[in-house]
């Protein structure tokens, strides 16, 4: 699928940790409204890439362009406010807050960002209704008063998606949101991803579960040892010789 309108451009990103090059000249762009997959063996640099896109890490070289604006130097919270939401591979809910409070905390940045206005009452009926809508969308509405660290993993993964949605994102980065889940949970999160995409949200998925990638993504980027080894439609990518070597070579050596 061709997207003439680019929402995110990852330009020649290199990230060095000491002597190790975790990412080496990664270059791609994502069209507005796309569902884009990133795959690669463990330690390939996928999460590092997410950390650089979301602003958790600064790249050693290269730049991130979001809606034609260079955001390479912006902090994570500023990028979230511009509309980049994300989840974590190892879930990180606000452990002692309720499900509803988790979402309200992120939702509040739309209204109370300024230190002075931040002292206003946040749980007004209007806001609560909007947060309820988000919770209903991800299927957590009935659990909204539960403390988040008491929830099972599947619900914590949904909670992270809900929290990412609360910032009113244009892009959501899902870091292995399907891992550790049962078959039916995977199906319902797949459905959620498609729903969100229909609402115009661009989605980038890191995933090991290839069937999920094949089914959801329009394009897939494969990285190995921090380098881009393939980029194309899921069908092209799985038939790519280098990709097969990266995966099978690892498995059968």
């Amino acid at each position: 699928m061709e997207h003439d309108k680019k929402i995110l451009e990852v330009c020649n990103i290199t990230k060095q940790f000491g002597g190790l090059k975790a990412l080496n000249g990664i270059d791609f762009s994502i069209g507005d409204g796309e569902i884009f997959g990133i795959v690669g063996p463990n330690g390939a640099g996928k999460t590092t890439l997410f950390n650089i896109i979301s602003g958790v890490l600064k790249p050693t070289n290269g730049s991130i362009i979001y809606k034609h604006k260079n955001i390479t130097k912006l902090g994570a919270y500023k990028r979230a406010r511009l509309g980049i939401g994300r989840t974590f591979q190892v879930v990180r809910p606000f452990a002692h807050l309720s499900v509803e409070e988790n979402v309200l905390a992120a939702y509040g940045i739309r209204f109370y960002y300024n230190p002075l206005t931040s002292f206003l009452k946040y749980n007004t009926d209007k806001h609560k209704k909007n947060v309820d809508d988000i919770l209903k969308m991800v299927g957590l509405y009935e659990l909204k008063d539960r403390v988040s660290n008491e929830l099972p993993l599947g619900f914590q993964r949904r909670l992270e998606i809900a929290r990412a949605l609360a910032v009113n994102p244009k892009i959501i980065l899902l870091d292995e949101s399907f891992s550790g889940l049962s078959f039916s949970e995977i199906e319902s999160i797949k459905k959620l991803v498609v729903d969100l995409n229909k609402r115009g949200i661009t989605i980038i998925i890191i995933e090991h579960n290839m069937p999920v990638i094949m089914e959801l993504c329009q394009r897939v980027l494969v990285i190995n040892y921090g380098k881009k080894i393939a980029l194309g439609s899921p069908e092209d990518v799985v038939n790519n010789r280098e990709v097969i070597e990266a995966y099978l070579g690892k498995k059968y050596n």
């Binding site: 979301s54 602003g55 958790v56 902090g75 994570a76 919270y77 990028r79 979230a80 406010r81 939401g85 994300r86 974590f88 990180r92 809910p93 606000f94 452990a95 002692h96 807050l97 409070e101 988790n102 309200l104 905390a105 992120a106 509040g108 940045i109 109370y112 960002y113 931040s118 946040y122 929290r163 990412a164 609360a166 910032v167």
Partner: peptide, 18 residues
Amino acid sequence: LASFAIKDDELAADVSGI
């Protein structure tokens, strides 16, 4: 609420716009 969120998980708060 934002402070409590930071107290629980600073990185998660950061990427949530706080």
